[in-house]
């Protein structure tokens, strides 16, 4: 659908859930003008309901025959309404209280996870738009207002054609496209394309303190993204079964320290994070990916070289981000797929 495809790899073994990516994105793009509730980048705790709440149950994407599936439009209750505190009064000695009932929010079940102590578990899952090769949002729009840029496959909304119908939100199985009720337009993660055009990575990747994010073109065989996805096959798409061919890939988390038995003794070889749960997210390649990472880590521990471990350690931003030189800027360059307006045809 596009000529090239930019992609991102996130190494979940290194994500500490600090939300620096979230803040980098929010301050850059979504802290104003009807976007206040939106998190183009969020970090959710898995297992968990996520953001918007229970997004994995809301449908969208494609069925096994390649037909777009029904989906739901998330409501304000699903996202959680931003709330304020009485900070002015609190400054005068009053107790800090929320100014509205707290029922849900963007990171409502942070660190809750699953399992019973002492065998409970969780991990963090940072999420942005997957800039899918077959985007559900793009397919769902009756006005064909959503398009993929030819040069990098970034999925964007043409605001001249968007009329705020919100079928895109039903069509995206990741719920990573949002409705701006103030502007009456849909909006989404733009992969920081103005930064990409300057040869810079998206803000979320640049600011990541854990250096978990790699950015590059999927056809750049020298790039680390290509190597993680295609050479080592340790980076896997999230919910590939949704059928949209997502372009954000994850190194799945290792199953963690062993579980404890009833006497508090570690059970050798036990999996704290159940592999079937990880497979439900990252698909049938999960076991092989984990085995590769564990084997390479063992090599490194034994003092042997491991190119994969060196890559995952992420020494240099210059190697992690292979975006290429600055390119022509501006939406006029994007060759949008939007249909001609009637006025243009006349």
């Amino acid at each position: 659908m596009s000529k090239r495809q930019l992609a991102m790899v996130m190494d979940l073994n290194k994500c500490i859930g600090c939300q620096t990516c979230t803040v980098a994105c929010k301050t850059q793009w979504t802290n104003r003008n009807g976007r206040e509730y939106m998190y183009w980048n969020n970090v959710e705790t898995k297992p968990g309901a996520g953001y918007p709440r229970k997004w994995e149950d809301m449908g969208g994407g494609f069925d096994a025959q390649g037909n777009l599936r029904e989906g739901e439009v998330a409501t304000r209750a699903d996202y959680g309404t931003p709330w304020d505190y009485n900070l002015d009064e609190a400054g005068r000695g009053q107790e800090i209280v929320a100014q509205s009932a707290l029922k849900n929010g963007p990171n409502w079940d942070e660190d809750v996870g699953a399992g019973d102590f002492p065998n409970s578990y969780y991990f963090y899952l940072p999420r942005i738009c997957n800039h899918c090769s077959n985007p559900g949002c793009l397919a769902a729009c009756p006005r064909q207002a959503i398009f993929k840029r030819d040069q990098d496959g970034v999925v964007l909304v043409d605001h001249e054609r968007c009329e705020g119908l919100r079928y895109c939100i039903a069509g995206c199985p990741y719920k990573k496209i949002y409705f701006n009720p103030k502007l009456f337009k849909s909006e989404k993660c733009i992969f920081c394309f103005p930064r990409i055009e300057k040869g810079l990575p998206p803000a979320c990747a640049q600011q990541c303190v854990g250096r978990i994010r790699f950015v590059g073109y999927l056809d750049d065989t020298e790039g680390q993204v290509y190597q993680l996805v295609h050479k080592y096959k340790v980076a896997l798409p999230l919910h590939a079964e949704y059928g949209t061919v997502p372009n954000v890939y994850y190194v799945p988390p290792l199953p963690g320290p062993p579980k404890f038995d009833a006497h508090g003794k570690p059970i050798p070889g036990s999996e704290r994070i159940p592999i079937p749960y990880l497979e439900s997210l990252f698909g049938p390649g999960t076991r092989a990916a984990l085995a590769t990472v564990e084997a390479e880590m063992a090599k490194k521990k034994a003092g042997q070289p491991s190119a994969l471990c060196d890559l995952l350690i992420a020494y240099n931003h210059s190697e992690m981000f292979r975006i290429g030189p600055a390119t022509a800027t501006g939406l006029v360059q994007i060759g949008r797929r939007g249909i001609k307006s009637v006025a243009e045809q006349r």
Binding site: F62, G66, S133, N134
Partner: peptide
Amino acid sequence: SPNPNRHYQVGTLDGTGAHPNN
């Protein structure tokens, strides 16, 4: 026709990994 991207060909991928429309 409604949006032609609503249906794609399973089992076929173009150069960037997208399924062509059906």
